[in-house]
């Protein structure tokens, strides 16, 4: 066997991957060839070096503790046709957030670049992320309003492009057991809906800018924080959490990975004005609890211009895995 032929077999020989006859031939050649023995030693040393280096490098590598919760959220999103758009940066930031739904109104002319930037500007920040200057500049051009909504177990920080016509209110009291189902921002940021639920109970708080006449619907008159309010009772219907997209919603956030529905026959709707905000609260909680929540609504911390929290590191892109799909108009699966 010639040196060249032996050389072709040396790596496999070291790996124990030659046939018995090849082994015999290689060993016979090595016994009388210094050059091939040196080559074998060099290749063996290279293998040792590489193997050791890979072991050292891999020993330092471990998945993040949030890996499973992120995957769960993705899998739950896959189970729902309208929910496969959760951008990977948001999963990293907020693994507890199940899905984002986004609808841009059909008549709204919006270039893709702006739309993506608008999505990037909408942040649920739960951790500190490095802030890339180029992203800051791009986002800074379109962010006008930010606010913080306290939710059971945490808070959501939201920054939006365009003005918010009022300062949203958020509840400082909720009955034990209720968790945040999600929230939705209306078409041109003129409304916001906060949704909370437990297994059997729910409350949805819809807010919008008060009209000039501040009229109230017909119903039983009650008082909320000294203001006249109207309570309508004995409502029937089904409250869907984790999947329902309010009419005209531009952006809907679903928290958690579960979705379901609560049928109710004793629903109540409380309507009143808190300053310049019209509030409608739909719930199947007791009247006393509804009034208690209503009286515990306070303005969220809010501001204009650059938010005091940080947007995500990477702008989502439709060209990369985990990017955001932008759909114009309402989705068929979510009428």
């Amino acid at each position: 066997m010639k040196c060249r032929e032996v050389n072709e077999l040396l790596v496999a020989y070291l790996d124990g991957e030659v046939t018995p006859s090849e082994r015999t031939l290689v060993q016979a050649h090595l016994a009388g060839c210094d050059a091939c023995r040196r080559e074998l030693a060099a290749l063996s040393a290279t293998q040792s070096c590489v193997s050791h280096s890979l072991q050292v490098r891999a020993a330092q590598a471990a998945p993040s503790p949030q890996a499973w919760s992120r995957l769960q959220a993705r899998l739950a999103g896959e189970a729902c046709p309208s929910s496969s758009w959760l951008p990977s940066w948001l999963q990293r930031l907020a693994p507890g957030v199940g899905r984002i739904h986004q609808i841009f109104e059909g008549d709204l002319t919006m270039k893709k670049g702006f739309a993506l930037a608008a999505v990037a500007a909408l942040v649920i920040a739960v951790s500190t992320v490095a802030f890339v200057p180029s992203v800051r500049a791009q986002v800074g051009e379109i962010i006008n309003t930010w606010f913080r909504i306290e939710t059971p177990g945490g808070e959501s920080e939201v920054a939006i492009g365009g003005p918010m016509e009022f300062t949203p209110l958020h509840p400082t009291y909720l009955p034990a057991g209720l968790q945040t189902a999600g929230f939705a921002i209306g078409g041109r940021s003129e409304s916001i809906e906060l949704m909370y639920h437990s297994e059997e109970q729910f409350v949805a708080i819809t807010q919008s800018k008060a009209p000039a006449d501040k009229t109230l619907p017909t119903g039983r008159e009650v008082i909320v924080n000294g203001q006249p309010a109207v309570l309508v009772t004995s409502l029937e219907g089904t409250f869907e959490y984790g999947s329902r997209i309010p009419e005209d919603a531009r952006l809907t956030f679903f928290f958690g990975t579960h979705h379901g529905s609560i049928a109710y026959t004793d629903g109540k709707r409380l309507t009143w004005y808190a300053g310049d905000v019209k509030v409608e609260m739909l719930s199947n909680l007791s009247e006393a609890e509804i009034l208690k929540i209503a009286e515990a609504l306070v303005p969220a911390e809010a501001g204009e211009g650059e938010p005091p929290f940080q947007p995500p590191l990477n702008l989502p892109s439709g060209d990369e895995g985990g990017g955001v799909t932008i759909q114009e108009g309402p989705t068929e699966s979510n009428p």
Binding site: P63, A67, L71, S88, Q91
Partner: peptide, 11 residues
């Protein structure tokens, strides 16, 4: 990238 790969592979 490894973290993203972990997600995509298990999906």
């Amino acid at each position: 990238d490894a973290e993203d790969a972990l997600q995509e592979v298990f999906i």
